Simulated assay, not measured.
Amino acid sequence: MEPKWLDWAKQLQSIAQAGLTYSKDVYDLERFELIRNISVDILAHCSNMERQVIKDLFASDKGYATPKVDIRAVVFKDEKILMVQENSDGNWALPGGWADIGLTLSEVAVKEVKEESGFDVKAIKLLAITDNKCHPHPPSAFHIYKIFILCEIVGGKPSKGVETSEVKFFAENELPTLSTPRNTKSQIEMAFQYLKNPLETVYFD
């Protein structure tokens, strides 16, 4: 579970963002801006991020606050799982990224696999929808849902992308160091459970 201070900061940010979006009274707007600044101060005090970075990334959104959606493609070959090495931290993740406006879940999964690994795939099945706060991801300023989609290779060949430096398949007992903001060991193990039992029901939360 995520630390309580992070939950408080995100709730304050959500309240402030909704208030700044829908309020008309100038005094209410000032109060909601104060609440937003308090949420930024909490994050800056309790994390290693600079206050201005937090404000630019976390507290500059407009409209009603909603969770961000991260889509991860689960691709198997010879009972091994496809992973890419991330340039950002040098660790490994399932191909994926933020959902794109105008694209379906399947289209995002297919696009991310192509861009990050070089393989052409087709989306087969929804496996899981997880909430970051329920899994051992590092603390994040955003409330994030992760959607895991099973995909099947139909063509292409392994090649690194703009954000990735290497492409490999790993057996369940040979997993590399994982990029935990993107996926956890338990989530990769869950993916292998779907390989072993294709009739497993969709996991959520």
Rank of each mutant, 00 (worst) to 15 (best):
F119Y: 15
S39D: 09
Y22H: 15
P3H: 15
V121W: 00
F58Y: 14
G19T: 08
C134K: 15
T104E: 04
Q187N: 12
Y194L: 11
E166S: 15
D100K: 15
A191M: 05
G97R: 08
E112V: 08
D205Q: 14
E116N: 07
V154P: 01
D61Q: 14
K146V: 01
S60I: 07
T184V: 06
A171N: 15
C134N: 11
K68M: 07
I101H: 13
P198H: 11
W5L: 09
V84Y: 06
V26G: 06
A16V: 02
R36H: 02
L199A: 13
R72H: 02
G19A: 10
F76Q: 07
Y203P: 00
M190F: 02
Y27R: 14
N183T: 15
S106C: 09
P136G: 09
C151R: 05
K111R: 15
N37G: 05
S88L: 11
E86R: 11
I35P: 00
S88A: 15
Y145G: 07
P139K: 12
S165W: 14
E79I: 06
P138D: 11
F169D: 10
N197Q: 13
Y203N: 09
W5T: 06
H143V: 11
K168A: 11
L178Q: 02
S106G: 03
S14F: 01
H135W: 01
E152A: 02
D61M: 09
V202T: 05
V53W: 12
K77H: 06
L126P: 03
S60T: 13
K160E: 10
K114Y: 05
W8T: 14
